[in-house]
């Protein structure tokens, strides 16, 4: 069986590297389509879902944001195993502000995002010098430590948690607030990572001594990346506190650390879009599997393993490669 290469017509006539010559609407669509699809999808999807799946959608968006936050850190060379720290810190800060001072969610959520980000950054500042697995271990341990701290000292409601938070004014506001933040984070940080600032962050991941040798204070850059990532995480925590109208020890649960990593790995590590895509696959999947009861986790785990073995580059990178392919092999007889 002989094969030959066949050109696929993508509608683009001239292309060199990342320079395109646009001559028709079809070409514009080819380039803008991948960006418009998630934007339109996220804006329309909440309208089509029933009340139960709208709740699932909220949690998809939250995990997508946590996955973005994880991927940002990973691209800077910091493998975090503790997104739950960021999530829980945001949740507790907004919960405390709302419970003890009665502040409105419109104030507590942004304050919690920034304050939570600052607290997490300060907590991790001493270990910023650690590399690889040592940094990861510390991020894993801190949220687990905080849970025991709350349990033992009974502060902030202890094991009971704080309940009776002010909910957000309407369901639609909840949905579109998180969609807006997700899209801003996805496209905003994507742009940031492709700027010269982002290049320095990627350089730290690649070779930190070489970045140091360029007269750049890598700890300053790592701190900035850490703050951005933890502020995103803290925002999601603060947001969910007002959705559930409750904050308690479960906010530091391991789920919030592990699931974002799984999402980023399945979706395609090293790309924020991949992290988002991963969350949009894994979270609904876990809901669908709820029907089969006890074996849910087994199937879920099996799915993960199959995916990682079959597509180690991640779904997003696979789709991206196929989408930008200009030739394919066809059989000739």
């Amino acid at each position: 069986m002989k094969k030959r290469r066949e050109r696929i017509d993508r509608g683009i006539k001239v292309r060199a590297g990342d320079v395109f010559a646009l001559c028709s609407w079809r070409e514009v669509l080819y380039l803008a389509g991948p960006k418009l699809l998630p934007i339109i999808g996220c804006l329309i999807l909440p309208l089509l879902l029933n009340a139960y799946w709208q709740k699932v959608f909220l949690s998809v968006a939250v995990f997508a944001l946590l996955a973005i936050s994880w991927d940002l850190l990973a691209q800077t060379g910091m493998i975090s195993l503790g997104q739950a720290l960021f999530y829980g810190m945001g949740a507790y800060v907004s919960g405390i502000l709302n419970h003890y001072w009665g502040l409105h969610p419109f104030i507590t959520i942004p304050v919690a995002a920034i304050l939570g980000g600052i607290i997490c950054t300060l907590l991790l500042l001493p270990v910023l010098r650690l590399r690889g697995i040592y940094f990861s271990m510390v991020t894993l341990i801190i949220p687990l430590m905080l849970v025991r701290l709350i349990e033992a000292t009974r502060i902030f409601g202890g094991t009971e948690g704080l309940s009776g938070m002010t909910p957000l004014p309407s369901k639609w506001l909840e949905l579109y607030l998180i969609v807006l933040v997700l899209l801003c984070a996805l496209f905003g940080f994507r742009r940031m990572l492709s700027s010269d600032f982002g290049l320095v962050l990627k350089g730290i991941n690649d070779n930190d001594r070489s970045v140091m040798n360029a007269g750049i204070n890598i700890y300053l850059f790592k701190t900035q990346a850490l703050f951005i990532a933890s502020a995103i995480g803290a925002f999601t925590g603060a947001f969910m506190t007002h959705v559930y109208m409750f904050v308690g020890m479960p906010v530091f649960a391991l789920d919030y650390s592990i699931l974002p990593i799984a999402a980023a790995i399945v979706g395609g590590p090293g790309s924020l879009a991949g992290a988002t895509l991963g969350a949009f696959i894994l979270v609904p999947l876990s809901e669908i599997l709820r029907g089969i009861g006890g074996l849910r986790i087994v199937f879920y785990g099996l799915f993960l393993v199959v995916f990682i073995v079959a597509l180690p580059e991640g779904i997003f990178h696979y789709i991206q490669r196929k989408y930008h392919r200009f030739e394919r092999w066809v059989e000739v007889d």
Binding site: L199, N207, S210, N213
Partner: peptide, 19 residues
């Protein structure tokens, strides 16, 4: 000690970003 993931000319951006 280059930045292996980056194209050669993007390697140069990092020192050029130095204060």
């Amino acid at each position: 000690k280059p930045f292996y993931q980056l194209p050669a000319y993007k390697n140069m951006i990092i020192p050029l970003y130095s204060p």
